[in-house]
Nucleic acid binder design. Structure first.
Lengths: 242, 242
DNA sequence: GCAAAAGTGTTCAGTATACACCCATGC
DNA sequence: GCATGGGTGTATACTGAACACTTTTGC
């Protein structure tokens, strides 16, 4: 490794970028050049940037998005996180064997983004960058399968405390859409009446007009998040969801 | 730095070791040789140990304790976490200027321990190691003041979800003692009747005999944690405390 | 007019909260 | 016997959970 290597060599980060589309929770994955396996976006931290900044940069590079809720959720610090020989073999066309770090600790982040606003962008090392349904992931490199599991679990816990949806849904959305988002993350059905009452009770939603098109049924109301109240609830973190 | 330096050079850890004594929350601090300022125990991670293992090792070295609840709570990853020149000057008798890492990211941990079971042990670099009341901390090196604040906040949040006390109180304790622990962490008074009902309702306590001595008043019951039930509640994390 | 989804209100049970009195002990 | 803290029970308010019917729309 040359002396001027501008990145930290012992610490990396991984971003679990989640979105919601067609009632499914999606995660953004990359397929590195000439490999069959996929991996999380993430990677190196510049020596002159904070770890959180590096996570924001990664998010921006892959999705084009900024000012997104990005949550540090866990440090993956075991000595042996995955089978290094297997990875070296699979990625030998990309990284010379002597260039591999001895060991890297990784900081896990998750982000929640609006599916429609993202144009997944592969980087120089990747052939493809696209959304995958978290329910049916492809084969993943490193310990990324595990990282995604832990991220989803952290997200589920966060849901008990804080509102979710601000960057995950379009600006305007309907109550059933918001409910399906919650149901997808929690993995179980919720009662529409109780759900609506609770959400409206939090005062983080503003109701707009009626939407007409699209649905072949009764037209639902449109809502928009009230950013001020939303942020207040986010900060206080006193929203229970059991 | 010699090639054989056996520690990670970009990543460190800091342990906020908390205990409860005389109705006060205490934190264990070290005073480095020939300095007036104090700092958190922690430090380097060996290249052949996991980050969590390193935190356990640190805890054991300073307190002699093992098998303690140790919680990763945050990565402190800004580029400039504190005034490096000030620190270099203050610690110049301990660390040669050229030995300073360019930058270190730190993983914060907190641990909850039984005050009576700890014999604080300074390490080779420290003159003193002792408990300080979190309400009146001395002058601290690095960003350790900040780290302690974040740890306490994380602890308060954890309290809403999980039982606390297993390693913090002696084996046998009274209900008022447990209540004072909660009151100290939460920073407000709780109703003794409701507190007792909730704790007993969780089924994590076993009542023993009556204790006689000590108190100049009615003898309170002694309790012990039921480890099995305690761990179950810890795992489920469904205990609200608002 | 029928199927599919959206919207709304009420009841019930469980739990958090507030509150007052008696009991045991050391001095 | 009195001051201090420990222990217990009850009434009330709130909140979450369960539940059924009407409305709108496209076909």
């Amino acid at each position: 490794m040359p002396f001027s290597f501008p990145f930290l060599s012992e610490l990396t980060l991984d971003c679990v970028i989640l979105a919601f589309h067609e009632d499914k929770l999606k995660v953004l994955l990359l397929r590195l050049r000439q490999t069959q396996d996929w991996s999380l976006p993430g990677g190196l931290i510049r020596k002159d940037e904070g770890v959180d900044e590096a996570a924001c940069r990664t998010l921006k590079e892959r999705t084009g998005l900024e000012h997104i809720f990005l949550q540090q959720f866990k440090v993956f610090g075991q000595v042996k996180r995955y089978d290094k020989e297997e990875i070296k073999e699979k990625l030998k066309h990309l990284v010379a064997p002597e260039k591999w770090f001895d060991r890297a600790v990784s900081v896990g982040y998750y982000a929640l983004v609006d599916y429609a606003k993202v144009t997944p962008a592969p980087d120089a090392l990747a052939d493809e960058c696209r959304w995958w349904d978290v329910q049916s992931l492809p084969s993943l490199l490193f310990d990324h399968q595990h990282i995604i599991q832990v991220a989803r679990q952290s997200l589920r816990i966060q849901l008990n405390w804080q509102p979710i949806g601000y960057n995950l849904l379009p600006e305007e959305f309907t109550m059933p859409e918001l409910q399906r988002l919650y149901e997808t993350i929690l993995g179980r059905a919720l009662d529409p009446r109780n759900f609506q009452r609770k959400m409206l009770g939090l005062g983080i939603l503003d109701r707009l007009g009626i939407r007409r098109k699209g649905g072949a049924h009764k037209a639902p109301y449109l809502y928009r998040f009230n950013k001020g109240h939303y942020d207040a609830v986010l900060k206080e973190g006193n929203m229970f969801f059991t």
